[in-house]
Amino acid sequence: MKTEDVPQDNKYLGSTTIRDLYYAVDDSGQYVPVASTGWEPQNEALRITWDAIGEEAEAIRQEVLAGRKSPLAYHMEIHLMTPALLASYTGLNRKDIKRHLSPAAFAALDDYVLGRYAEAFGIDVNELKSLGHED
């Protein structure tokens, strides 16, 4: 890749301090490092991944609003967690976590367990009980 061909398709990186770095060939044939704000195919791959997560989260949000799932299910989805991963963050039992995805079991949780969940997500307990948290 030539230095002038290094892509600068900014979508996600521009507002942060993070950059891609390419080793590209300059006019004299030497490889030199060139910083990049992103490349469109990579941005596209990220976009469809997050779109899919967003769609899934919205579907779960609707189920929570309809009283079929607990808010925990929603927070798990937006934090990209499975019961197994959440179990290792919280130290809770995987089966219990699955149980807490139902509104009745979630409503019965004590502050200690709620605190474990909130801590794992990096939010407070009130946010955990609601759907307001949008990261």
Partner: peptide
């Protein structure tokens, strides 16, 4: 498509230098 997107993300993720390290190896 999502699985393909994951392959592309790994290939071009920040921290590979593009093309899964191949350009950096050329350097």
């Amino acid at each position: 498509a999502l699985q393909l997107a994951q392959v592309i993300r790994m290939l071009e993720e920040i921290g590979t230098g593009g093309a899964g390290f191949r350009y950096m190896y050329a350097a």
